[in-house]
Structures are given as structure tokens and as C-alpha cells.
Design a protein around this nucleic acid. Structure first.
Lengths: 182, 182
DNA sequence: TTGATATACGGAACACCGTTCCGTATATTT
DNA sequence: AAATATACGGAACGGTGTTCCGTATATCAA
């Protein structure tokens, strides 16, 4: 990779990161290029599609979340572990408004650049769920995919501006349906 | 209203109805105009905004759903009544892919053309919920707005193509959290 | 029936979008 | 310094929602 290319790549990543946090995942590619003082062609050279850019932005965070699940798998009570992790995932998606839709399409489309990252997240949640189920603290008739759906639904709700207040209560309602002991 | 205008209005409504069912609520305004063999200006003359068009398309159905809630308020067991109505609302939104997002913005924006219709829906659900709560069949710590959110979240899940299979199970999980006796 | 007028129509135009393409510029290598 | 590989910028394409206005037509009066 040429030196100027590497510089632009890094610069674009950091600008895009900021734009993602400030304007949401539906920020226009042109906007990102503009804010980075770069032609739109340069942006597309480095990130051939919007999903590729999102993947570059989210991959490490997703890995962090998956890692957190592994930590929690060792330490805390099984039900509390699941709860804490759910809250963290939802807080993350809340901080990155608009990433839910690309995530939902990616999770079922192996060709998507985001696919792998999403599957890792789903798998991490599934392992926490299994442990809680083995422990008898989570209802047994749920699988990882369904848990992922429930997380996504809660995350989607929290994305709706006016519903932020109710989000915490609804989280408890749904979590109460997943876990046996409230 | 001039005769030709009335004719175009009715024609546009029926074409838009078909387009809404076949292509979803994000069908382009140009597409609707094209399918109706009408200039895009004509479409906008009759429906000054996309939400106005949606309102014209959905209002009567929403009224039907609200009416259904009133019927159910009279007849069936309170928990079953709520359940049946929830399923009907979700089935309706499922048949009209894409209406959820405009509904969610409309419910909190009194200026929206869709606002009134959405509030009617929310109110209808709230009355069913209250009756079930008074009867002791629904958990008491929920209000109409929260129920509406839960319905929306479930409806959103059912809109995700690959998740249709899990939708029924997840409906039961969430419904089980709202109702006391499964 | 003809003429005036109010109303409605069609579609070009504007500003945006994601994405592609290619002539030009620059970094690297010889 | 020349050759070459690589990267850059931004015009261009086909799409979007929406606005605007010159033209056509329905309606009403004479």
C-alpha cells in the first residue's frame, strides 16, 4: 500500500467513526468524503461498499463485545451475566444509531461484509444463553437466533427517539421473559 | 372537486393500495404515478406528502382494527381478547411491509398526517390492556404506550425477511411477558 | 355555442443519494 | 531522470422526494 493511500485510509476511518457516532449509520458517503477532504472515489477505493466501511468501523467493537461475553461466561452468576451482556450490546447499538438495519440484513446474508462480525455476536450471546439455561436461570425453549432477534427488537425500540424513556422498562419486561427469576 | 380530479384521486388511491401491498410502503412516488399513468405532479396535488398518501390508504384499516378492539372488549375473555387483537395488528403491518417506520415517527409527531390514526390504534390497544389488567390477566405495570412499543417491536421483527419463522415463537415469548397466564 | 375563468395536469428542474469510471497526478522503483 | 504502478478527484449515471409552472381542460356564464 502506497504511503498516501495508507494515510487516507486511516484518516477516512477516523472521520467515518466520528460521522457514524454523530450522524448515524445512514450518513451519506459523500458527506464522509467531504468531511475527510477527499474525493468520493477515494472513499470507494478503500471501502468498496457501505457495508465494507461499516465492517471496518464495527469489527473491533463487535470483537470486544464477544470478548466480554467470554469474560462473563467465566465469572458472574449465569442470569446476571446474560443480563449485563444484553444491556451492553443494546447500549452499543444505541450509540451507533442506524447500524441495526445493516446488521439484520448481514446476519442472514453470508456474502455481506458484515456477516461474520454479526455471527460472532450472535454466537457469543448464544453461549451465555446456553449456560444460563443449563443453570436453570433462563427459559430452555429459546435458541441463539431467537435471542438475537429479541436483542435486535429491543435495540430497534431504543433507536426510536421518543421511546428512550420506556426502553429501560421494556428491557426488563423482555428480559423477564427470557430469564426465570426476576 | 372537478370530475377529472375526482377520477384521478380514486384511481391513484387504488393503484397506490396495490403498490403498497406488492412493493411495500417505501415504493417510490414516481412508481405510483407511473403505474397510475399520471404525472408525478398530479400525485402530489392529491397527496401533498407521502404520509398523507399513507394516511389515506391506512385510515380505514386502522379504524377497522380499532373497531375490532371494541368488539373484543365486549365479548371474549380479557386475555384472549388482547392476544387476538395483538395478532391481528401484527398481521396487518406484516401485510403492509414498511409502514412501521412512518407509524413510529407519526405516533410522536402531532403534525404528521398519520398521527391521529396511530393514536387511535394505540388507544384501542390500551383499552384492551386495561380491561385485562382489571381482570388480573395482564401484568399491571404496563401502559398503553409501552404495549404499543412491544407491538411495534414484534411487528418490526416480522418485517425482517429471514425471521418470519421465529416470529410466532417470539410473539409467544413477549405475549407471555404481558399476560399472566399462558 | 362561445368565451371566460378556475382548476388540474404533466413533467422538467432541483438537490440529494449510492456507485462507477477514467483522465490526471503522484509515489515508488529502476 | 525516466518509467511504471498506484491512487486521486470528481464528473457522470440512474435513482430518490418534492416543487413549480406553462399548458390543457372542465365548468360556468352569456
Amino acid at each position: 500500500m502506497r504511503a498516501d493511500a495508507k494515510k487516507n485510509y486511516d484518516h477516512l476511518l477516523s472521520i467515518a467513526q466520528k460521522a457514524l457516532l454523530e450522524q448515524g449509520a445512514d450518513v451519506s458517503m459523500r458527506d464522509i468524503a467531504r468531511q475527510a477532504d477527499v474525493g468520493v472515489g477515494t472513499l470507494y477505493r478503500h471501502f468498496p461498499t457501505r457495508e465494507a466501511l461499516l465492517d471496518a468501523l464495527l469489527r473491533s467493537s463487535f470483537d470486544d463485545l464477544a470478548g466480554k461475553a467470554n469474560e462473563l461466561n467465566g465469572a458472574a452468576e449465569t442470569d446476571k451475566a446474560l443480563l449485563v451482556w444484553l444491556e451492553e450490546v443494546i447500549a452499543f447499538t444505541h450509540a451507533h444509531r442506524g447500524i441495526l438495519e445493516p446488521m439484520m440484513s448481514a446476519i442472514e446474508d453470508p456474502a455481506s461484509a458484515l456477516h461474520e462480525s454479526c455471527v460472532r455476536l450472535k454466537t457469543a450471546g448464544a453461549s451465555l444463553l446456553r449456560r444460563a439455561q443449563a443453570d436453570g436461570t433462563a427459559r430452555p425453549d429459546l435458541d441463539g437466533a431467537e435471542l438475537f432477534d429479541l436483542i435486535a427488537a429491543l435495540a430497534w425500540l431504543r433507536e426510536q427517539p421518543a421511546h428512550a424513556q420506556r426502553a429501560a422498562r421494556l428491557f426488563n419486561v423482555v428480559a423477564g421473559a427470557v430469564l426465570k427469576a426476576p
